[in-house]
Each structure stands twice: as C-alpha cells, then as structure tokens.
Simulated assay, not measured.
Amino acid sequence: MTETAIRSRDNPIFRRLKKLAESSRARREARMTLLDGEHLLAAYLAAGGMPHTLVRAESCAPARLAPFAQDCRQARTVVVPDALFAELAPVATPTGVLAEAAWLTPPASGGLALVVVLEDIQNPGNLGAMLRTAAAAGATLAVLSKGCHDAWSPKALRGGQGAQFVLPMQLAADLGAWLRDFSGTSIALALETAHDLYAQDCTAATALVVGNEGAGLSGATLAAATKRARIPMPGRVESLNASAALAVAVFEVLRQRGARR
C-alpha cells in the first residue's frame, strides 16, 4: 500500500475525518462514518463494503494493514501522528487503525418478520449492543426513532460489531405511524402491566418495542403497540438494562418459533 503522511490538523483529509468522528450531521449528509479497528474493517469487507480511506497511527505497525491490502486496493492509506489519531478515535486507548467508509444498506430480509423497534436509545454502547443482538437473532428490521443516538457513530459501531452492516435499519422513524401500519403483533416491553412476556404468542410476525434507558416508552408509542408485556423479575431490582431486556425478548421469540417448528 502506498501511504500518505498527514502532519497538520489543517490537512483537508484530516479535517474531513474529524468531522465524521465528531458530527452526526456530517455523517448523515455524507452517509459516511469511521470504523475503529481491524475487526470492524473485516466485518465491513465481508458485508461487501469498500472503505474510502484507511488511517494508521504512526506507532501502529504497517503490517497491521497488510491483510487488507488485496481487498482495499481502491482505498487511500494515510498515516497520522498518534496525537492526531487520538482525536479521531472513539476510545481512550486507540486501536491504531481506522477506516473511512460509506454507510451500507443491507437488503430487506425475507421470511417471518422479527422487528426491533427502539425509542430514544441514547447510549451509543447500548444502541450498538441492541443492534448486535437483533442481528444475531436474525431480525428482519430495526426501526429507530428520531431520538435514538446515531446508529452510524463510531461508538455505536463498536457496540454493534458489524451489526449495522447486515441488519436493515429504518432511521429517524415516526414510531406511532410505523406501529399502526405494521400488520403483525407489536409487543411493547413495559413494567406497568401484568401481562407476562412468556405468555405471549410470538410465532407470527412480531415487533418488539423497547424504550429509553431511563424513561422507558412514551405514552404515544405504548398506545400504538398491539400489546404490552413485562419480563418476570423475581429478584430485588427495579428493571433490566434496555439492551438486556431486548436480548431476553428477542430470544424468547426465537425459542417459541423453534418449538413451534
């Protein structure tokens, strides 16, 4: 790979990368993002993506990028001082490798609908983990409200570990309208109900609706859902983390469908 050295924050390439690292608006307008580390880069390539730019910190050995040389022939490679790389990295201990990459649009999944509907999930790690869980369960779609954190932010991508590359997503959705139009059963996970999640029939088309980490689901979204259900918790805690609640629910759907088959 031929590498270009960047030394200045005023370099136009660095300035573009910095905007992608810091601004959801810049990512949305360009439909580009930054991938942190070799694992995400490999997942992106496996999903059919082609990075625009590879970024290496000076302290990172060039050999780290060697495995990607064949698949990234069209990508520009730049090397930046560690101090500048740290300004782009989403974590306190940078991996030393970043990639500038276009958003992917996975094709719609066929088969019986299993949709995760997320309202105002604001923690990027939680959001990424929820998308990862949905992808692992074979969800056909993720529907995100306007109040959710940017699903393509570097931190959400780290949490998703490649989920955004394979899971169809509808972003900035009007959840009330989407739920009213959904032809299957939508189940809102809520504490304020006596209905047990495990007593619900999830063998037909199902959408699982999960709310904000602190506030839960809004009244409008609860009203638009077909049903409400709670996860039984005999222990002495008030609630589950939103990501954990979704994991319990989505794999209960899979359990029921497997048992029905």
Rank of each mutant, 00 (worst) to 15 (best):
M1Q: 06
M1L: 11
T2D: 13
R16M: 11
L17Q: 04
K19R: 15
S23N: 15
R25T: 14
R25P: 01
R27K: 11
R28P: 02
M32Y: 00
D36I: 01
L45Y: 14
A46M: 11
L54V: 10
R64V: 11
R76G: 03
V79I: 13
D82V: 07
A83K: 12
A83T: 08
F85C: 07
F85E: 04
A92D: 14
G96W: 01
A99N: 09
A101T: 02
A102T: 09
A108G: 14
S109P: 01
S109Y: 00
G110H: 12
L112W: 04
L118N: 04
E119K: 04
N123K: 13
N123C: 06
N126E: 10
L127C: 08
T133M: 14
A134F: 02
A135D: 05
A135S: 10
A137P: 03
G138N: 05
G138Y: 04
G138M: 05
T140P: 06
L141A: 06
A142L: 09
A142G: 06
S145I: 01
A151Q: 05
K155C: 03
L157I: 03
R158T: 05
Q161E: 13
F165M: 04
M169D: 01
A173L: 05
G176R: 11
S183W: 05
S183G: 09
A188I: 04
A190G: 06
L191F: 07
A199Q: 10
Q200M: 15
Q200C: 13
C202N: 06
L208Y: 04
N212D: 09
G216F: 08
L217C: 10
S218H: 07
T221V: 15
T221I: 10
A225Y: 07
T226N: 13
K227T: 07
R228L: 09
A229M: 04
I231F: 09
M233I: 12
M233Q: 15
R236H: 12
R236P: 01
V237P: 00
S243W: 02
L246R: 02
L246H: 03
V248P: 00
A249S: 10
V250M: 08
V250R: 06
L254P: 01
A259R: 14
A259K: 11
R261C: 13
